[in-house]
Structure formats: C-alpha cells, structure tokens
C-alpha cells in the first residue's frame, strides 16, 4: 500500500470531522475520494499529509509513518491543493521553478522538469505571465504544474477542477490520466461524480467523515438494487397502459406525469426494447426516449437518502 490510514478521528470541538476514517491506496491506481461538500475529504487529505493535527489514528505513506518532518516521504509526494497556492510576484515559470526547487536541487535537471511541466499544463505561451494575468482555468493549471513538476510517485489532488471551465477541466483530467500512465499513483478528491466516474479506477464514497462504500464504479453500482431508468415523452397515456407497463419484466416503478413516462428497472437486459415493443403494440406514438444507467449519485442516494450535490 502506498497510503494506509487507520481509524483516523479528527474533532473540531464538538464537531467530528473524521469519524474512524480508514483508507488504503494501492500503487498505480487513481483513487477517487467522492463526497459532498463538507463530507471530510479535504480534512482527510490534510491529516494524511500531516498538515492537520488529529485526535486518533495512524497514517503511513510508503510504509513509513507520516509526520511533518518525514522529509524522505515528502520528497516523493506531489500535492495540488484546493486553493491556488502560487506567488503573485513570480511568473508562471518562476512559480514552477520555485516549488520544484524545494524538491530537486540540481538546477539543470530542474530546468528540464520545469519545461516539461509548463508544456504538460499547456502554459508554454504564458511562461512569463504573472498569475494575476491568467484566467481561472490557467491558474488551476499552474497550480497543478507546481504540484507535479518534480515527478512525484504519489500525487494528491484536492478538488483541482473547482471553478475550471469545461475545456480546461477536460485538459486537466486528461493530464491526470497521463501522469497515471507514467507511473504516478493519484488520489483525487472531488464532489463531481462525473469526473470521478470518468477518471478513477477505484472510488471511496465518504460522508460525515466516514467511509460509506469502496470499490470500482461497477462494484459500487452493483451494490444498489437499481438498473437503468428509461424516460419517454408520450401524450395521452391511459391509466390502463401505465398499469400494463408496470407488469413488464424487471420494472421496479412507473411514473407518468406531465406527458413524461419514467420507468425504473431493477436490473435485467433489453429493457428498452421490451418497452418500445409494448408501446408499438398499443399503437402509442411518442417523441423522445432517454435511457440512463445508474450513477454514483444513485449509489450515494441509496446509501444516505440524500443527493450527492445536497
């Protein structure tokens, strides 16, 4: 295990921010830490990195206890914090060089690493720009470059795409995938389930400082008793037809409201085909049809009774 966290407890007065939180991170994976705002993701990361004092528990990184003076371990860790942490008085290139220089002493080696990082985040044309002149997306990319320029074995990214435009976000996610392909293990926290689904090989869902579920996205979705949801825009559907749809195989529930038919399935295959055959046999005309697979939000909803975005 690259990271091993056991029974971490962190309290702020009466508020329990981490409640016996445990976590294992395996070498080579992209682990997603998914949870709503205030679920304890950032607190967990800060405790793991020994920035925050905690009340109970143990943290090991690279098999060694993590501490503020664990400089050997720190050398191989790269962190991309939630807030942009760069100096406004230094240019893009200087910022990357400064933070990289705290890990890599050799100036010639560092020059190459900085060059690589600048190109990796797509800021080659802005290397002499000061952060104030950069857009929000560019700032985020600079923030990432400062965290990964020294080529760490373990990269911890805390909501790196908050406030980033969709184009920059895709570029950031693509970059993280590349880093992983080059051998880096990534811990990625986010409250955007789409990002986590798209990027992570394993996901930990957490809420109220506790781990709720762990697994691949398929394993997590298999945990809940819900298959796909089919929505059909259809007019003048009779109650009798609704009742007949409810009798179709695998159907868990049916709703018809405002000319919109929503059919939720427990599981099973060919559900869309069966439904369309039924509508054709009843000579019912319809307009649009949507089919949605269950999401991590459904998993979260099933476990907590709340939406992930609450």
């Amino acid at each position: 295990m690259l990271i091993s966290v056991r029974d971490l407890v962190k309290r702020y007065g009466n508020l329990v921010a981490l409640d016996h939180f445990s976590l294992d991170v395996r070498e080579g994976e992209i682990l997603g830490l998914l949870g709503p705002n205030g679920s304890g993701k950032t607190t967990a990361i800060n405790c793991i990195l020994s920035l925050l004092r905690y009340d109970k528990g143990t943290v090991e990184i690279f098999g060694r206890p993590m501490a503020p003076d664990a400089y050997e371990s720190k050398r191989d860790i790269g962190v991309v914090p939630q807030n942009v942490a760069v100096f406004n008085e230094l240019t893009v290139e200087e910022n990357i060089d400064y933070f990289c220089g705290m890990y890599v002493e050799d100036r010639a080696v560092r020059r190459g690493l900085v060059q690589e990082a600048v190109e990796f985040v797509g800021l080659a044309d802005f290397r002499r720009f000061y952060p104030r002149k950069l857009s929000g997306g560019m700032l985020r990319r600079l923030n990432i470059a400062c965290g990964i320029a020294h080529k760490p074995k373990l990269i911890i990214m805390d909501e790196p795409t908050v406030g980033v435009d969709p184009q920059s976000r895709n570029s950031v996610l693509e970059g993280i995938r590349k880093l992983n392909e080059h051998g880096a293990t990534v811990v990625y926290t986010s409250h955007y389930m789409e990002e986590v689904e798209q990027l992570c090989t394993r996901i930990v869902i957490m809420d109220k400082g506790r781990t709720l579920a762990t697994g691949t996205k398929d394993e997590l979705k298999a945990m809940i008793n819900r298959g796909e949801t089919i929505t059909v825009e259809i007019y003048a559907l009779q109650d009798e037809d609704v009742e007949r749809i409810r009798q179709l195989p695998n159907v868990a529930s049916v709703e018809y409201d405002d000319n919109r038919l929503t059919v939720r399935y427990a599981n099973g295959q060919h559900n869309l085909l069966t439904l369309l055959d039924f509508l054709k046999s009843r000579d019912l005309s319809f307009e649009k049809v949507y089919s949605e697979r269950p999401t991590l939000n459904d998993v979260f909803l099933e476990i907590t009774g709340r939406q992930l975005r609450d």
Partner: peptide, 23 residues
C-alpha cells in the same frame, strides 16, 4: 507565507521536503 493555517502558499511550502527551519 510560511504557515499552513495562514495561506495556501504556506500549506504548499509546509509539504515540501525542505527542512522547515531552513525555509
């Protein structure tokens, strides 16, 4: 710029492998 609880830059510098007293 040195303390993690005062600025993001402080947090980032606290995570570096450079001895804190040297910084």
């Amino acid at each position: 710029d040195l303390q993690a609880d005062q600025s993001p830059q402080g947090a980032r510098r606290s995570l570096a492998p450079t001895h804190k007293m040297a910084v």
